[in-house]
Each structure stands twice: as structure tokens, then as C-alpha cells.
């Protein structure tokens, strides 16, 4: 677009300054604080980093956090992709209804959605009443405070983040391509894996990225549904900062979260670009 109104710099400056003061500066401070060796923040040193990286338990927590994110991404894909395919095939009227149904949970507080899963997965919850009512188990299943329960909950909590970009690319795929694929004798499965999914790759990657980022930082869902026995990085950051009041160590754990999440996100984004580039490029 040509320059038609005003100048660019004065318009970006206010938001840029706000980001500098309230986003960049705090993150720099976070890095700085992690280099205090003691929790009183008097001596500089690499003590916190040595303590954090030298303990196998912390590596296990990092691994668990990344794995939780990946499991959530896999579960949302398993259910979200078919829903997106149904959306593609639906009439415009149904598409509007489906879109509303997808957006509604997204705008409903994360805490509300977490609470919903307590009601569903609890000892007297919906699932257990059904299971016991059907005589499938004599005792209530333990679903809360398990990773399975947490992944099921996060699947619902994060699925809209996958679906929004996914529905957007699905809606733009030319239906003629599918007709062509079918008339050339391809089975629907072949069309799905060889035509639809490659074309939808950028949307899938964008969605996976958001789901991963959101599920790994979902402190309240992790602590309320996962319970105290399942330790993920956010709980560690919170505990160290607000309970133990060891800010340098909390900063170190927060940076570990930042770095591990960013690394996986970079991989997902690159994979999406490569898959998309092969088709569109």
C-alpha cells in the first residue's frame, strides 16, 4: 500500500514504547535476576544455573512439561482435524454454528473450563457415574491428579486454538482439487493424506504452536487437575517465586520454560514452513 495517510514511525512509537517498558525490560530483568547466586540477591554468579542444570530432577521436570505439551498437541490434532474436515464439508449455515461452538469455549475463562473438568473427572463426576452405572468398574476411577485426566482436560481447553487457524486454511482449499483426486481414483484416505493435509500444513503448524505454548504454561489447569504429585515447570516457577521466595531460582526456572517452549515452537514453525513451502512454493 502506498503512503497515503500520516507517517509510520509516530504511529508505531506509542505501542513500541509500551512494549519496551513493560515487555522487553521485564524480560531482560528476568535474565539479570537469574545471575544472582544467592536468594537475597547480593552476590552475582552462576550458582542458580549450576543448581538448576546440575539436578536430574529439574531435567525431568523440563521433559515432563515438553511431553505434556506434545501429548496435548497430539490429542487436539486427533480430534480437531476430523472436526475441521467436517467443517469443510458442512453447509454455510452449519459452518457458522460450528465456528460459534469453537469460539465460545475459547472466550470462556480457562478457570471455568478447568472447573468443568473437576466436575466431570471427579470421584462423583460424570465419567465415574457413567462407568459405575454401566457396571464397568466397582470402584470410582481415579482420573483427577493423573496425567491422563490432565491431557483430556487440556485437549478441550486448548482445542479452539488449533481449530481457528485450521478452519481458516481448510476453508480456502479449492474443492476442485479433491474432486480431481477422487476422479483420478484416489481413496478418501489417500486424498486426505496426499492432498488435504499438505495443503493445510501451515494452518496445522500455526495451531499446534498455539496449543503447545498454551498447554505448557497452563498453571491453573496443571495444578488443579494434575495435582501436586505431577510437577511441571510453571508450578516450579510459581512455588519458587511466591512460596519459597527465591527469585533468582524462580527466574532460572522461568527462563528454562521460556527456552524449552521456544525451541519446540521453532521446530514446529519450521516444519510448517517446509511442509507449506513444498506445496505452495
Amino acid at each position: 500500500m502506498r503512503s497515503t495517510w500520516g507517517l509510520a514511525a509516530p504511529l508505531v512509537a506509542p505501542l513500541g514504547l509500551a512494549y519496551a517498558a513493560f515487555f522487553v525490560a521485564p524480560l531482560l530483568m528476568l535474565f539479570a535476576v537469574s545471575f544472582y547466586a544467592d536468594d537475597r540477591m547480593t552476590v552475582l554468579g552462576l550458582g542458580q544455573w549450576q543448581r538448576f542444570l546440575g539436578d536430574a530432577f529439574h531435567w525431568k521436570v523440563i521433559g515432563n512439561t515438553v511431553l505434556l505439551g506434545l501429548k496435548t498437541v497430539a490429542a487436539t490434532l486427533l480430534l480437531g482435524l476430523p472436526l475441521a474436515l467436517a467443517y469443510r464439508a458442512a453447509s454455510p449455515g452449519w459452518q457458522r454454528v460450528l465456528l460459534f461452538v469453537v469460539v465460545m469455549p475459547l472466550l470462556t475463562s480457562v478457570v471455568v473450563r478447568t472447573f468443568a473438568w473437576i466436575v466431570i473427572l471427579g470421584r462423583e463426576g460424570v465419567v465415574n457415574q457413567m462407568v459405575m452405572g454401566l457396571g464397568l468398574a466397582a470402584d470410582p476411577l481415579r482420573l483427577l491428579q493423573t496425567e491422563l485426566g490432565l491431557v483430556i482436560s487440556l485437549t478441550q481447553i486448548e482445542m479452539p486454538l488449533l481449530l481457528l487457524p485450521l478452519l481458516s486454511v481448510m476453508a480456502r482449499i479449492d474443492p476442485n482439487l479433491m474432486d480431481a483426486s477422487a476422479s483420478l481414483g484416489a481413496s478418501p484416505w489417500r486424498t486426505l493424506f496426499r492432498v488435504i493435509l499438505p495443503l493445510a500444513a501451515p494452518g496445522i503448524a500455526a495451531g499446534c504452536l498455539l496449543v503447545f505454548a498454551s498447554s505448557t504454561t497452563a498453571f491453573i489447569s496443571q495444578s488443579v487437575i494434575g495435582g501436586e504429585r505431577l510437577v511441571y515447570l510453571p508450578a516450579m516457577v510459581w512455588q519458587q517465586a511466591m512460596v519459597v521466595a527465591n527469585w533468582p531460582f524462580a527466574a532460572t526456572a522461568a527462563i528454562a520454560l521460556l527456552v524449552s517452549v521456544s525451541a519446540v515452537i521453532a521446530v514446529i514453525a519450521t516444519a510448517g514452513r517446509i511442509a507449506g513451502g513444498r506445496i505452495h512454493g
Partner: peptide, 17 residues
């Protein structure tokens, strides 16, 4: 960036800042 960076790390950073 705030959309994908872990919000929790940013929250702690803001508190310290």
C-alpha cells in the same frame, strides 16, 4: 511474541521488574 511466549515467565518477569 506475547501470544506464544510462556505467559508465566512474562508474569514473573513483570513482578520482578
Amino acid at each position: 511474541a506475547p501470544l506464544v511466549l510462556p505467559g508465566l515467565a512474562f508474569g514473573l518477569a513483570a513482578l520482578m521488574y
